[in-house]
Each structure stands twice: as structure tokens, then as C-alpha cells.
């Protein structure tokens, strides 16, 4: 299977020109979600029905009666992305269109790992034929940057004024435990990789899960032009590993391969010090954070 679906390394101009996201939308300047969504939609193509819960993406989609997205979209409540997708899939199957139209749910990190995890787990257990895409800006950005289950250790949010004391919930591995056919992590800073992983996900039947880190300039506290670099640093430091789990086997993505060697991992401090949300962090926190990331790579190593 791997050989069959191996996609070549794409160059920027290999990406299709057709856009499903329209300019003049409501996202913030430098929004990584916009870039990520643009790539994901290119990969999914026209024959797709999307479902979106309350989130930043609702804002991007725009206010009634116009939308900045040229694709069929079913807005749903905060916790019901996967249930909504299940309904769309069932209806399409009943109409004999189950193989023809792709169903994809796009939810934020809170909508996925907090309020939406029950419905997602249920849909994955049923191996519902859809792609679940979590775009992770590590906080409830749309409601004003509160703490989520995906907020990392020590990050300031409006509800963790002294920094969060717990680590990020490991959603991809939770999804791995469901035994679904395709799981991937990606980051908006690697648009070709986002595109390729969505393309690849389309080749599978059943529940597919793609978890994407999308640095948020206002939420994280960095200049808008640094959106891309911030994601790169998250990957290069090993804080956010890029991988795929295909039929239960994990494959590190090339961007993360160098992190296997601890000496080639960028120090977490290089990533943390550029962001306002870690401004208050103390040396002992950094040390602990580094240890956590190193341990996490030992954990990942078990699956390779």
C-alpha cells in the first residue's frame, strides 16, 4: 500500500492553481489556518462536502449570506463535527454517492480533543468513511484564546494567566488506538506536505485523521510574517513531530526524520523564546519542557 500511494516531493508550483478559498475573507492577517485550509481544499477537490463546528473556521467561512469558501459546507454545533459527518456519509451512501463524494470535518483543537472527542471517538469506532481534520492552534482562539486540551505546557492563555501546568493531549495517538486506517500530523508551514497528506487520506476508506499545527499570530504573540517560521521551529525542535500511521504502522515524515537524533533537534528554547505566550517562562520550565520533548521522542521511537 505504501508504495502505491507514495507521493513525490512536491514543489510549490506543483500545487494546483484552482482555489476554493476566496480572498477578502474574515481571517486575521497571517492566519495559518487560512493557508492550511487553502491547501487542504485543493487536495480534497470539488466533490466534497465539508462540515465545520463553531470555530475560527466559521469566521473564515463568513457571515450570511456570503461565504469565502467555494465548497458545500454544513456548519454544525461545537461538539458535533464527527456526528454531522456521520450523517452526511450515511445520506450519501443512501443515495449511492458514498464513493463519489468525500466527506471531511474540519474542527479546531478544542472542538476535537475537548468538547468533540466523544463524537469523534464514536465515529472512528464505527470507522465512518470520512476525513477528520483537526487544525490545532493550541487554544480556543475564536473565543479569545482560552486554554484547551491542546494548549502546551506553560503557555499563557486568558484562562491560564501563569501558564498551563499540563501537557498537550496526544490526539493522534488517541486516534491510533481506534485502529483507523490513516492518521497523519502536518503543519501549515509545510503546505506541500499538508496537500500531500490530504491527497493520500483520500485514497483510504474509513475514518482518516489529520492533525495539523497552525501557529496563531495573535494567540501566540508573534509578528504575522513569522507564521511559517514558527511552525518550522515547532517541527525542527521535535515539539510537533510530523508522521503518518498507515494501517497501524508509523512513518516519520522527512521533515521530522532529523529529530530522531537528539543532537539534531533544535532546543525548545529557540522556539519558546519567540512567542509572547511563553514570555514568563523560567529556566527550570525550559529544562522540564526539553526533557518532556526528549522523552516524547523515546515514546515515538517505540512505534517506528
Amino acid at each position: 500500500m505504501m508504495d502505491m500511494i507514495e507521493t513525490k516531493r512536491l514543489r510549490p508550483d506543483d500545487l494546483p492553481e484552482q482555489e476554493f478559498l476566496l480572498p477578502g475573507n474574515r481571517s486575521c492577517a497571517g492566519c495559518s489556518m487560512s493557508l492550511y485550509y487553502r491547501m487542504a481544499l485543493k487536495a480534497l477537490g470539488k466533490k466534497t462536502i465539508i462540515t465545520v463546528p463553531a470555530s475560527c473556521l466559521t469566521v473564515l467561512h463568513g457571515l450570511y449570506h456570503k461565504t469565502s469558501v467555494k465548497m458545500n459546507v454544513v456548519h454544525t454545533t461545537f461538539e458535533t463535527t464527527a456526528a454531522s459527518a456521520s450523517g452526511i456519509v450515511a445520506a450519501l451512501e443512501a443515495k449511492g454517492l458514498g464513493d463519489e463524494i468525500t466527506v471531511c470535518g474540519f474542527a479546531g483543537d478544542g472542538g476535537t480533543s475537548d468538547i468533540g472527542i466523544q463524537g469523534l471517538s464514536g465515529a472512528a469506532e464505527r470507522n465512518t468513511n470520512f476525513i477528520y481534520a483537526c487544525y490545532d492552534n493550541e487554544m480556543y482562539s475564536n473565543t479569545g484564546t482560552q486554554r484547551s486540551g491542546q494548549t502546551p505546557y506553560m503557555a499563557y492563555t486568558t484562562t491560564t494567566p501563569h501558564g498551563k501546568l499540563e501537557h498537550k493531549k496526544n490526539m493522534p495517538m488517541i486516534m491510533h488506538a481506534h485502529g483507523i486506517p490513516y492518521i497523519a500530523t502536518s503543519c501549515s508551514s509545510y503546505p506541500q506536505d499538508v496537500y500531500a497528506k490530504f491527497k493520500k487520506a483520500k485514497l483510504f476508506t474509513g475514518t482518516r485523521y489529520i492533525h495539523t499545527l497552525i501557529p496563531c499570530p495573535p494567540g501566540w504573540g508573534f509578528p504575522t510574517d513569522q507564521s511559517i517560521e514558527m511552525g518550522r521551529l515547532a517541527v525542527k525542535s521535535g515539539i510537533f513531530p510530523l508522521f503518518e500511521i498507515i494501517d497501524g504502522k508509523m512513518f516519520l515524515s522527512p521533515e521530522s526524520e532529523r529529530c530522531l537524533d537528539p543532537s539534531k533537534r533544535l532546543k525548545v528554547e529557540e522556539y519558546l523564546k519567540l512567542q509572547g505566550r511563553f514570555k514568563h517562562i523560567q529556566p527550570e520550565h525550559i529544562e522540564y519542557y526539553q526533557e518532556y520533548v526528549d522523552n516524547h521522542w523515546n515514546f515515538i521511537n517505540q512505534f517506528l
Binding site: 470539488k46 469566521v59 463568513g62 457571515l63 450570511y64 461565504t67 467555494k70 458545500n72 454544513v74 456548519h75
Partner: peptide, 8 residues
């Protein structure tokens, strides 16, 4: 394509 139930 259309979007169903956006913000009003």
C-alpha cells in the same frame, strides 16, 4: 456549492 447555517 453553498454553506448551510453560517453566522447571521
Amino acid at each position: 456549492p453553498v454553506g448551510v447555517n453560517p453566522v447571521t
